[in-house]
Nucleic acid binder design. Structure first.
Lengths: 273, 273
DNA sequence: GAGTGGTCTAGACCACTGT
DNA sequence: CAGTGGTCTAGACCACTCC
């Protein structure tokens, strides 16, 4: 796998060489790499080529770089496992529970898979005209007023951002309950599904669309990742019992510390129900 | 969003500028970009900086580069939508259908969401000793012999690779039916779930773990994407009715043309069943 | 102030594409 | 053949961190 590829570019070979050193422990976790200048001298390459190698290593998640300090072997990131399937079902069940109970098992914590109280939350509300891509999903006219809620969530223990994104609701639909337009009411005990229940909406199913891409510069900054790392994009579409799309969330998560988990139960062959 | 960020680096500004030109149609789909030399002259930047900008644009999926020809505005890729939830349920139901029917609705086609007959398939079999990460998932001793099946799938219409990856089965378990060790029997009508049914295994549920990262060089080559594009990684774990893990698939898909779709049905509040 | 990585420059050679 | 992007070099200045 990491053989002697004679016909490779120098920077790719250097990256592979360093990756091997890291994987077999010759460069242990947390230890500093030689500086770019040193590597250049050691391997007889210009700094530009060394930097190309470093770009690969950072993308692979093997190396972290602190500006002004140096490059370090990254300890494998603890991934936040987001058990989407179970989490959605729990959130719906929770809607029917009393408020003190909803308060205890915050929807946000379920969402991220982190222990209770471990998630720091930030929300901003505003209103936007539905762009075509959203109007199409909601089945409404482009330009219809939407309530847009921007979320930032981060892990309290290390301050690392976990996800950021937008949740969209049709403004005039949720305006029936003015509390839903009030950012001061967030985080709402029981989450969005409970919010929707206050205006008589029961969510019937949730469709998650998952894609991946490199981060836009702004996302890289907000999520605290660098250019070379991927992001997981989740578009979560909630559909009510009438088949109407009631919420669309567009969520961006750092690819190097996120894992989305979906469970599909399969009907038994011998089951009669 | 694409405002005048005065304090940005030159290559980032150039990338943003070109991205704007593309998004508002001044650089239409399929049209060639100015060459790196021309851009450098036009904006008074060195070629290195222009290349940094191009690297961003390629990562964002806005620009495709043909070596020796030039850079072109990429038409948005038609994404292959993989309806995982429905696909798994269909595959299980299909197991109970007669062979001619299984043959018609090939599991592979369901898997990719492409029309029937649109998927080109390649498979290689071999045997490996279970590495710790797989032994742990299977609940077996590290070193236990596994049957490893490597898949390559591509779209017949344009030849683009769709996914590649490995499927692992415990060798001694599937060896009960020698046909399952025979690569010549692939593609198997009805897919892996039917294969497992021939040795008395009923799959009860499937757990999908989804992550994202930049491609390894070998994956970039196999999938026909370049360094800057992300890959979606899917680890699919099949669990039988006894709770035993029976198959682990590790699949890599090009992030710029793949979309994973999961549907979560939520029990009705007023339902009695 | 010395060392680090991030950016930028101005050259060079190469493999590949079109003609 | 000329033109393209991919690689590589040898310099430079900057902002930042650590001492």
């Amino acid at each position: 796998m990491a053989g002697e590829d004679g016909r490779q570019h120098r920077y790719a070979r250097l990256a592979a060489e360093l990756a091997d050193r890291i994987r077999d422990g010759r460069l242990p976790e947390g230890s500093p790499l030689p500086s770019e200048a040193e590597l250049g001298a050691e391997y007889g390459m210009s700094r530009g080529s060394v930097r190309n190698a470093m770009r690969l290593l950072r993308g692979w998640g093997l190396v972290r770089v602190d500006k002004g300090r140096g490059a370090f072997v990254r300890r494998p990131r603890r991934r936040v496992r987001r058990h989407a399937t179970e989490r959605y079902r729990q959130e719906k069940q929770l809607v029917r529970r009393p408020e003190y109970e909803r308060r205890l098992s915050g929807a946000v914590e379920m969402d991220t898979g982190l222990p209770h109280g471990q998630v720091q939350h930030r929300i901003e509300f505003d209103e936007v005209d539905a762009p075509p891509r959203l109007a199409h999903v909601f089945g409404i006219a482009p330009g219809t007023k939407l309530l847009r809620r921007r979320y930032h969530e981060s892990d309290v223990s290390d301050g690392h951002p976990i996800r950021t994104g937008y949740s969209y609701l049709v403004h005039d639909v949720v305006a029936v309950n003015p509390d839903l337009l009030n950012a001061g009411k967030e985080p709402w005990p029981g989450g969005t599904m409970h919010q929707l229940s206050t205006i008589g909406i029961e969510v019937d199913r949730i469709v998650d669309e998952v894609t991946a891409r490199p981060p836009m510069p702004e996302e890289a900054e907000v999520l605290g990742i660098d250019e070379g790392v991927s992001v997981l994009c989740l578009r979560k579409i909630s559909i009510d019992t009438a088949g109407q799309v009631v919420e669309v969330s567009e969520i961006v998560m750092p690819g190097d510390r996120t894992e989305l988990v979906y469970t599909t139960e399969l009907p038994r062959w011998d089951a009669t129900s």
